[in-house]
Design a protein around this nucleic acid. Structure first.
Lengths: 250, 250
DNA sequence: CGTACCGTTGAGGTGAGTCAAAGTAAGTGG
DNA sequence: CCACTTACTTTGACTCACCTCAACGGTACG
């Protein structure tokens, strides 16, 4: 893929910009900072777990956005086409990319540096509003809980839920046991896990049988916190898959 | 639930604001416009398919966010706790609420009118940046495709995918048939559907057998478009469930 | 003390995953 | 232009986690 500065048109960011940037100097600066690259099928525009360096705008071609979940499953969630922007979520979220963008066909893609985008947002409110709207409408990779729902057994999903709710609803006692007071009914747990209440009950019984956690109504006791973590970590990693893994998949 | 103006503190929006609003008059206006309400378990803060009127900020208590999918399944995707904001997605997206917010416990919730929030975003860039960050980090209800992934058979998910890709990749011929040139491999389709390539193949065979659509490599022909729509509509509605339905569920 | 709602338990069916192997298309080098 | 390699697709047999339906036990509340 070769990089060239270009003065072409048809870039969505320019549209985002035009409706707001009144100063010609700013418009020119944006135009100058713009970089156009060509990608071929299979090329990566950006990669999961990398930090975001700027904003991408697809001029032609198609891009598949997917992430590698803790199972090593490649899960796609968006097909981007001409005129769409990419990488905005991690740019504004100040998080590493949650997904990998991969060219499905030959693509012409514009890139704008993060610093300049930031600056223009400070200067032009309508620019910011545009992105607020874009972000609000576009849903990134599905939330961890549901994402895993597709591949993880309910028992493991339940453990993840406990680990997530631990921060806000958990309390560790002197003896090292974790106590949780859940504000959720069984049917609420079920709908968070994408399962049926009966299945949740059964998963709860499983955890009790194996001495991982005990549920009494909405009160949960995890006597052996380590066992809970093992439950989640044993087969699947809690954290992001490392970049090595991502680099070799797909 | 009773509504009162209040001068209390501990509201996240105020935090969003404080770091940016330098003008005392603006700060006071925001404080005055603020409305505090009390909700009890089961009360709805807002309801799916309603238009957003403002921004909600949870001061105490817990709220479950869920939506009714086309199956009539209640699918929860977030438990909001003290300090979190709600309704921002539909506010900035200028879309109706995609979900219903329901109090799990007694809640104290602040509300700020849309107009004022808009105005402040125009005045204070740091205010806008805060929300850009919040929006980028929070994932709303999962995307339509994946959302349905939990409950729909693969065959139906595949039909939805075709209907979605129709806009960009489809072309209707003279004879009324729909032709799609997908830029996707089987494994890409599979990962969009949350399924395995083998299962996608089988679903494709099913559709061919029933005369709904024919796949030749990446070229898809839907001879009877109506049949495709029926496939999606028969059991489940494509659009939002009507508010009547939402009002009576849960 | 009855009426709801919630939670649990059991029996039975099935959609989709897994594994393995054969078939097909696409791309490469001589 | 044809052999060869590689990657993608299809098919079949098997297994199982979860859903469905249905009944029963528990607890809260009027």
């Amino acid at each position: 893929m070769q990089a060239t500065k270009c003065a072409g048109v048809g870039c969505k960011i320019n549209e985002h910009v035009r409706c707001g940037i009144s100063d010609d100097a700013d418009a020119a600066r944006l135009e100058n900072a713009r970089l156009r690259q060509v990608y071929r099928r299979g090329d990566r525009i950006f990669t999961q777990a990398e930090m975001a360096s700027g904003l991408y705008c697809l001029q032609s071609g198609h891009v598949l956005l997917w992430y590698l979940d803790p199972f090593g499953h490649r899960t796609a969630f968006r097909v981007a086409g001409p005129g769409e922007i990419m990488g905005h979520r991690s740019l504004f979220g100040e998080d590493p990319h949650a997904a990998t963008a991969e060219a499905l066909t030959t693509c012409h893609i514009c890139w704008y540096p993060k610093g300049l985008v930031d600056e223009l947002i400070g200067t032009y409110p309508s620019f910011a509003r545009r992105f607020l709207r874009t972000l609000a409408r576009d849903r990134g990779p599905p939330d961890a809980l549901l994402l895993r729902g597709l591949h993880m057994p309910i028992r493991v999903r339940l453990v993840y839920l406990l680990l997530i709710l631990r921060e806000r609803h958990g309390e560790i006692w002197r003896d090292g046991s974790l106590h949780l007071e859940l504000p959720l009914l069984r049917r609420d747990i079920a709908s968070l896990l994408g399962a049926r209440p009966e299945s949740v009950t059964r998963a709860i019984q499983d955890l009790k049988r194996d001495g991982v956690a005990t549920f009494n109504g909405r009160h949960v006791v995890v006597s052996n916190l380590e066992a809970l973590y093992n439950e989640a970590n044993q087969e699947y990693d809690l954290g992001l898959p490392d970049s090595e893994e991502i680099a070799h998949s797909g």
